[in-house]
Amino acid sequence: MKTSLHVATALALSAGLLASSGAMALDAQPAHAPVGNIVLVHGAWVDGSGWKPVYDILTKDGYHVSIVQEPLSSLDADVAATERVLDLQNGPTILVGHSYGGSVITEAGVHPNVVGLVYVAAHAPNVGEDEGALGKNMPSYTSKQTGAVEKTKDGYTYLNPAVFPKDFAADLPLKKAAYESHAQILTAAQVFSTPLTAAAWTTKPSWGIVAADDKIISPDLERWYYARAHSHTTVIAGASHSVYESRPQQVAAVIEDAAKHAQQ
């Protein structure tokens, strides 16, 4: 009987010690681990392949990275394409958008997997706003040029290949910029004038990159967007609209900062 009592007492003490050390271990762990999933969204006239330099850095650093290929046929279709990829993520995700992709992530970013947004030389309208109207308030260098943006008879736009290298990609090698000018995805004009129905930056933390030599979107407009959203803002001097390709290390660093701090 005494032996049984001693055994029971020892077991109780051991259980108590284990519970106590388990609680201490939990207390020692950070409240939120860094986000491991990143989804990249391209802008108008280009496709997701331009994200490869950033993708390579992020995957090397251990992140799970997915790239959305939008049809660029309507804002709704592009948001739906982004939501499909977000549905495939296995947990908290940082959603990144370049240029018009900023409008896409602003709407798609209300997805429950998204815990933070990164705008890369991007638009960030509010509910009821569209980037076309906002762009007229602070016009870009390109928008002031006659014939820079062309339109097909069925309402799809593209950037004139003659101006693409210096307007879209001035800090890329000329051969690469020229290739991209002839590999454009024609983009429905309506995507630029469709009002947003959601604005994820109003409820989720955001980071913004200003491309200081951007000719497609006015850098002043980028700054205004990010100030309104209270985004953590980084200005990259000398960067063109193709900043995600020309300065991948700096862009990846901002994305990783978002992944580390979005849930704090």
Rank of each mutant, 00 (worst) to 15 (best):
E245D: 00
A200R: 09
S49H: 15
H6W: 12
T82A: 04
I255P: 00
Q249E: 13
H123T: 10
T234F: 08
A148S: 14
T234G: 01
Y55N: 07
A10T: 14
D27P: 00
W207A: 06
Q250L: 08
D214Y: 05
P161M: 13
P195K: 07
D78F: 09
A229T: 14
L221V: 07
A122P: 02
L186G: 03
Y141K: 07
L159F: 10
Q184W: 15
N113Q: 08
T9H: 05
A177N: 05
V65N: 01
L75W: 02
V118Q: 07
K204T: 11
G132S: 11
G101Y: 06
A198I: 08
V39F: 10
G97T: 04
Y119P: 05
A183K: 15
E70D: 09
V235I: 13
H42V: 13
A200Y: 12
V127L: 11
T233R: 03
T142N: 03
D171C: 14
V39P: 11
V243F: 00
A198V: 08
Y100W: 09
Q263P: 02
L172M: 15
W201A: 06
I105E: 00
A259D: 12
L5E: 11
P139T: 10
D76K: 11
W201Q: 12
L26G: 09
K2E: 08
I67H: 00
G16M: 07
A148W: 12
L172V: 13
G155S: 13
Q249A: 13
T194K: 06
D61F: 03
V39T: 14
N126S: 15
L58E: 03
A162C: 03
L117S: 07
T194R: 07
V96C: 06
E245A: 04
Y179E: 15
P161F: 14
D76P: 01
D214Q: 13
V254W: 02
E245L: 05
S143T: 09
A189H: 14
G238A: 06
V104M: 01
V251S: 03
I217Y: 05
G101K: 01
H241A: 02
L95K: 03
L186C: 04
Y156A: 07
G208E: 09
H232E: 09
K52I: 05
I94C: 04
V254A: 01
E131Q: 12
K52W: 08
S240F: 03
A183P: 05
T203N: 10
A262W: 09
S20Q: 06
Q190E: 15
Q184D: 13
H64I: 06
A122K: 04
S193K: 05
A258N: 09
A8C: 01
L72V: 01
D76C: 00
I185Y: 11
D130G: 02
P165V: 11
I57A: 03
N137K: 15
G132K: 08
A10R: 13
S246T: 00
L221D: 03
V115M: 06
W45Q: 03
V39L: 11
